[in-house]
């Protein structure tokens, strides 16, 4: 089974954590990204995620492999949802194990930061007003929050 997955189904957190079970590990650090009800001063009603799955999965595996090398991890697993998600739903889950907590905290942070910056995944916000916007894709004259990063 792959360590990084794009999932159209809700993320099974218990199943993800079970895959990290390791008698040598003294620490498990997890990160959950949730769908939030506001962004950039606007009320958000839901979020739509779209992924270029083959490349997102291969790049996600690359990020996990980098983290394993940099932080002396036991295991690393991550899953990113796609589809139309409601407020409070789980959009991304990252879990890492290590002998000690410092490496696990650092690696978890590394993985989610790199995932946000590198994976070909996009989100469209649906606002209470009925308007929508692809995040980071605005150009001059459009929604001011979408500057390039």
């Amino acid at each position: 089974m792959k360590s990084f997955a794009i999932s159209v189904e809700p993320i099974d957190v218990a199943a993800c954590a079970r895959r990290l079970a390791d008698d040598r590990a003294g620490a498990l650090v997890t990160f959950e990204g949730w769908v939030r009800n506001h962004n950039d001063g606007q009320q958000v009603g839901s979020l739509e995620y779209e992924a270029y799955a083959p490349l997102a999965e291969s790049e996600g595996e690359r990020i996990l492999a980098e983290a394993r090398v940099r932080f002396a991890l036991g295991g690393a697993v991550a899953v990113h949802r796609t589809g139309h998600l409601k407020i409070g739903e789980l959009a991304v889950w990252v879990g890492v194990t290590a002998e000690h907590r410092a490496a696990a905290f650092d690696a978890c942070r590394y993985i989610i930061d790199e995932a946000k910056a590198r994976l070909p995944i996009w989100k469209k916000e649906h606002y209470a007003s009925g308007a929508t916007a692809w995040i980071n894709c605005a150009t001059r004259g459009e929604h001011a929050g979408g500057s390039a990063t």
């Binding site: 994976l119 989100k123 980071n136 390039a148």
Partner: peptide, 10 residues
């Protein structure tokens, strides 16, 4: 070929 707009995962 795939053109990749600015990404916004997470």
């Amino acid at each position: 070929v795939v053109f990749i707009p600015p990404v916004a995962g997470g």
